[in-house]
Design a protein around this nucleic acid. Structure first.
Lengths: 208, 208
DNA sequence: TCATCCAGTTAACAACTGTTCTCTGGAATT
DNA sequence: AATTCCAGAGAACAGTTGTTAACTGGATGA
């Protein structure tokens, strides 16, 4: 299936990626609904009309960015939840993983946090759908745990959403603390850890 | 202290409020960073230059909107937390209060959710500061509860932030379901209730 | 009553926006 | 080798933007 792309297709994909990269960079200081088509092409170094060869509109570009950003997030979520060890150790590792991800892909995280409730409907919907998929995956992982015995499907999904939202909140906090002192980032980590711990305690006593 | 405003000051405040209202309406379908000065004045029905008599920039207007939106939210948070009754009854009433607030001030809720991570720094900071104040108030209310005996200040604040974030998430879900069926809104309410319940359970067993 | 103040107006500015149509030159196909 | 294809360029469009300066006329305070 992996047919080597022709020179033409390869160049096109390269330009397309340049659009995505440039847009992501521009979006660190504004939101998608104010991102101009010409602004992006200027940053890439191509003519404004070249934009239309790849995207219908900036909203369309935004949807493509959702895929890229949350695509890179998928492995994180999975490993975060399915990490071995006791509950406390799991939490510590999960928080650390989130911190690492934010350091590795700050622009992606910022984009998702910003546009999740942003002013562009198709993008909001794309993010909502992807996060729902995440929640489903988390739910599937949770179901494997013996702790989940006796839990209804609804309750498992409820907990999964709680975890996903908590991850996003934590990621956003790490993002704000990215250029802050080591101490401040440590404080974010401890806050997130304790919140996760409290949720885990609630989980453990859910069926009481 | 309530000196009756002169005709002049009264008219000015009226126009200012018209700016805030018009902006809030326009922001239902876009974000602040794309809100144009002329766009707002056009909606109000005044000359573009009149804008400068009230705000330095649209970012400045945004900060004013934060005060208005979260000002109206303050009473809700207080009554939500300090409601009497057992834990289960409290939660139900809290979720209902959030639902009512979203129905009463949908544009305010949307604005806060959207701009909390939006593209305009001063507005983000204003929201962050106000939410921190909320968390402090919630913490103060939590401290009154006998359940808080033995809790450290840090842990109380941690829980307060968890509650505040959870309120925002719930409000945002209600907002999305505003024009949906009664069933769908009921489902949101049940999800939020169960998540709150799980957090409360975690709270109850925190010191185990 | 008269001078001062000031919210809102009018006009003009250079700079920017999204979109259309036409063109080009090299890759892809036959 | 000849033909088709198509990513990107170029030029032009009407419409928009934020900001400036100078103004008007009614409320305000002496």
């Amino acid at each position: 299936m992996s047919h080597t792309l022709g020179i033409r297709q390869a160049q096109k994909q390269k330009t397309r990626q340049a659009f995505l990269d440039a847009a992501l960079a521009l979006l660190e200081e504004q939101s998608l609904s104010s991102l101009g088509l010409r602004e992006v092409t200027r940053a890439v170094g191509v003519a404004p009309t070249a934009f239309y060869r790849h995207f219908r509109s900036t909203a369309d570009l935004g949807v493509a960015l959702v895929d890229e950003a949350l695509g890179s997030l998928h492995p994180m979520v999975k490993t975060t939840v399915s990490t071995a060890g006791d509950s406390e150790e799991r939490i510590t590792r999960a928080v650390e993983l989130i911190a690492r991800h934010v350091e590795a892909y700050p622009a992606h995280v910022r984009f998702i946090a910003r546009e999740r409730h942003g002013g562009v409907q198709p993008v909001r919907e794309a993010i909502r759908d992807q996060l729902a998929r995440f929640a489903d995956e988390v739910k599937a992982e949770l179901a494997k745990d013996p702790q989940a015995d006796g839990w209804s499907d609804d309750d498992l999904l409820m907990l999964a959403h709680l975890y996903v939202d908590q991850m996003l909140i934590t990621a956003s906090l790490f993002l704000e603390a990215l250029e802050a002192s080591q101490d401040e980032r440590e404080q974010v980590a401890q806050l997130a850890t304790r919140q996760m711990r409290l949720i885990s305690i609630g989980r453990r006593h859910w069926l009481d």
